[in-house]
């Protein structure tokens, strides 16, 4: 009799533990998805700013028509529904690059730089960039959390049974890394 109680007790404890671990894994996986979708939200906000930016700068920036056209094209491409995730990331990175170049080019137009409209827009853009970076960092934290759970004992066993896969971290793309070199951008403008 006592043996049966013992076995039942152990089974209940094991069951509860299994349930908790399973739930924690699902929670972590959903946190990653949620973080990913919030990056998307921020990126969409950035698209919304681009038409405003172009409208503000185009009357001043007579020499950078190509740059602005490129920006519009990239935005259209990123917004079109039938784009693969990989292509989306590339487009996104190119967009960041071109935006950075527009901002540097503004330096050549003191009137534009001082205009209230542009200053407001620049503030909004900085804000969005900061938000995007925060969202990416949140995503990376969530992914690290999930990846740790997938690899560490005891959750790794359940994760194996659930067939959970490790996710990739966001890393600064080649384009973004190049952007940091502001001097080369100045040179290309001369």
């Amino acid at each position: 009799m006592e043996l049966i109680f013992c076995i039942v007790g152990l089974a209940v404890v094991a069951g509860v533990a299994l349930l908790l671990l399973y739930n924690s894994l699902i929670g972590k996986k959903n946190a990653v998805d949620q973080a990913f979708s919030s990056i998307d939200v921020m990126l969409k906000k950035r698209y919304d700013l681009i038409p405003n930016l172009i409208a503000t700068v185009e009357q001043y920036m007579t020499h950078e028509r190509d740059l602005l056209t490129e920006l519009t094209q990239l935005r259209t491409r990123a917004l079109s529904g039938d784009i693969s995730p990989d292509a989306r990331v590339t487009t996104e990175n190119q967009l960041s690059g071109v935006l950075g170049r527009v901002m540097v080019a503004v330096e050549n137009y003191p009137d534009l730089k001082a205009s209230q409209n542009f200053l407001q827009l620049q503030g909004s853009l900085n804000e969005i960039e900061e938000q995007i970076s925060a969202a990416r960092r949140a995503y990376n934290a969530a992914v690290t959390d999930l990846n740790n759970a997938i690899e560490m004992a005891p959750t790794n066993i359940i994760a194996g049974m659930m067939n959970l896969q490790k996710r990739q971290l966001f890393v600064a793309s080649e384009v973004e890394r190049q952007n940091v070199d502001v001097r080369s951008l100045f040179r290309s403008n001369q």
């Binding site: 973080a35 900061e130 938000q131 970076s133 925060a134 960092r137 949140a138 934290a141």
Partner: peptide, 9 residues
């Protein structure tokens, strides 16, 4: 989570 990182750059 995101706002915390937005503040704590």
């Amino acid at each position: 989570q995101i706002e915390a990182r937005y503040i704590l750059s």
